[in-house]
Design a binder for these strands. Structure first.
Lengths: 113, 113
DNA sequence: TATTTGCGAAACCAAATGGTTGCATATATA
DNA sequence: TATATATGCAACCATTTGGTTTCGCAAATA
């Protein structure tokens, strides 16, 4: 099974869980209280987040606290940055730009980010 | 079927396709040449990217050119920004911080991004 | 006109996903 | 000690995913 950060945040519930426990660590039960699915479904989401390092869990007696690990999201922003660099590189390649200007299928004036 | 930007970029092949055509628009066949899967598999990926607005396709005779639409990725960076705001808010809430310092299950010195 | 080329659509398939219910276990508490 | 609480794990299920092969059709070309 694929288990990477991009796949982890593809699910809207998992994104919401991340944002929720970013404010303050919560136990699985408290997290589950905030979502319309079962405790076990949330538990699965937490396991996936844990497996790709987006959260860590510390035990405190019979309770477990889920803490967010924000640094792991750098993988996403790094990819976004690399993508944007590729996009901007397009405008610095004169030959490419000239070719596009002569070819109506490749409009050169598509707006950047 | 879910069809949003997060789900679209969850697949590594689709991320690579995005980065590839960010440099310059390509036809589906040219895109497929760059990947180890069949042309039809790539065609499906392109359809998904198109359905969630990450690429647009212009026709030129019997060829189609796939163009990246970078602005749609703002949905991702917007979520990252919102998440980081939530994370930073954690440090501005004094009561929360004090509670964490007294509770070893909630370490207050977890490193930010 | 006959053929090649570019590409989408459909049918099919194994695996993954996101959910459920039920059970087990460890820790608090009465 | 008996009970309640917090939580993980396993089994099961329907749907989605990512891939394949096959077919069809429109546009270019011989």
């Amino acid at each position: 099974m694929r288990r990477d950060v991009f796949q982890a945040i593809a699910d809207p519930t998992r994104r919401d869980i991340m944002t929720l426990i970013a404010r303050s660590p919560l136990t699985p039960n408290h997290v589950a209280d905030r979502f319309p699915v079962s405790r076990q479904a949330v538990s699965k989401h937490l396991k996936i987040l844990q497996e790709c390092g987006l959260i860590t869990v510390t035990r405190q007696g019979r309770e477990r606290y889920c803490h967010v690990q924000p640094a792991r999201l750098n993988e996403v922003s790094d990819w976004l940055d690399a993508f944007r660099r590729s996009w901007e590189e397009r405008f610095s390649r004169l030959d490419q730009l000239l070719a596009e200007m002569e070819d109506p299928a490749n409009p050169p004036h598509t707006s950047p980010l």
